[in-house]
Amino acid sequence: MPPLSSITPPPTSLSRTDSLSGRLADAILDLIRTDGLTTGDAIPSARTLASRFEVTTPTIREALRQLEATGAVELRHGSGTYVGPTIDRAVMVNPHRAPLTKESVLELIGARELIEPDTAAAAALARTDDQLRRLELASGNALNPPGDRPVAYHFHIELAAATGNRLMRELIESLILVRGRQQRAIRRLYDERERDHREHLEILAAVHDRDPAQARQLTRDHLAHIREAISSADLQADAAAADGDR
């Protein structure tokens, strides 16, 4: 990366949000993009950035913490600050946790029911062979007991990715991640692992066959089965476990 003094941020860099730390966070993102940095690349130190923007180092650190909360940067103790994995996402995950209630879990399922059936239909029409392979690898995640190390691919995220629309993938991923506690509660309370896996395979087959109507209906039925199980479950008994599995 060239010296920070040689980079001129766009005139709007410090005018997008009301708080100083928020405006600085936007300006740091502008610097990263202007210099073409990508995930894993180092960015200037807080001291260097403070000098560049003529603010205090603690103020820069607050801006960096805001970016770290969304995954746009990573602060590595004793090493420095690096571009994070979400730098190119159009949809960012909210770092604040939503309360865990049965209503919030059903709300998540309801949102997914509105979005994912049509997403599956689009995937059936647009999927590539590589996306189909990733979906096949992801189909097995249903068999993992709650609390196990997650597999590399998430079936519903890969289903969205198979539409070929990056924003749709990011939308589903962000929806699942921002309500992570609710998603983990679903994994615990809907414990029909074999049925979950079988339904994933059925959706996969419809996508493979490029059958959008079948993919839509199977995804709708799959999410409805999950909603029915959660509706009759005792979430209160699960709340302590959910907090312990953050």
Rank of each mutant, 00 (worst) to 15 (best):
G164I: 08
R16E: 10
L14K: 13
D35H: 07
N94H: 09
L20W: 10
L106T: 01
L159F: 12
A240N: 02
A185H: 00
R181M: 01
R76G: 15
D209F: 01
R33D: 06
E228R: 11
H197K: 01
Y190F: 15
M1G: 14
E158Q: 07
P2L: 10
N144A: 14
L67A: 02
A237G: 13
D196W: 01
L67G: 00
G140N: 04
R188P: 04
D30M: 14
N165W: 08
T101A: 03
E199N: 03
I186N: 09
L218Y: 12
F155A: 11
S104W: 00
I60W: 07
A63F: 06
L20S: 12
T101E: 10
R16L: 04
A111V: 14
S5Q: 13
A50G: 10
E62D: 09
R210P: 00
E158P: 00
R227N: 14
T59H: 05
A161F: 04
G147W: 11
A242W: 00
R149N: 14
N141G: 10
N144M: 08
A42S: 15
P117W: 09
V55R: 13
V105F: 01
A237M: 02
D118L: 15
P99S: 01
G36Y: 06
Q66H: 10
A142E: 13
L175Y: 07
V83F: 09
T119Q: 02
V91Q: 00
A25W: 00
E202H: 05
D245A: 12
A224Y: 05
V151F: 11
E173I: 02
S51H: 01
R89K: 13
A185V: 02
R227P: 09
L235D: 04
S79M: 09
A42Q: 12
Y190G: 06
A111S: 13
A240Q: 07
Q217N: 11
D234I: 07
P9H: 10
H225M: 11
L75Q: 15
R187H: 11
L108Q: 06
A229E: 10
P9L: 06
T56G: 13
E113Q: 12
G22N: 15
R195P: 03
I176Y: 06
L175H: 07
L135H: 04
D148S: 15
A50T: 03
S51Y: 09
R169F: 12
Q214G: 12
R133Y: 13
A63P: 00
T163L: 05
L14V: 11
H225N: 13
A98F: 02
Q236I: 13
S104C: 00
R220F: 03
G110V: 05
R149M: 11
L31T: 06
H197N: 08
S79E: 15
L108A: 06
I109R: 02
R89W: 15
L67S: 05
V55Y: 07
L20D: 09
F155P: 12
I115F: 05
I176C: 10
R227L: 10
M168T: 14
E113A: 13
D209R: 11
A162T: 01
L106R: 00
H77E: 14
Q217T: 11
I230S: 02
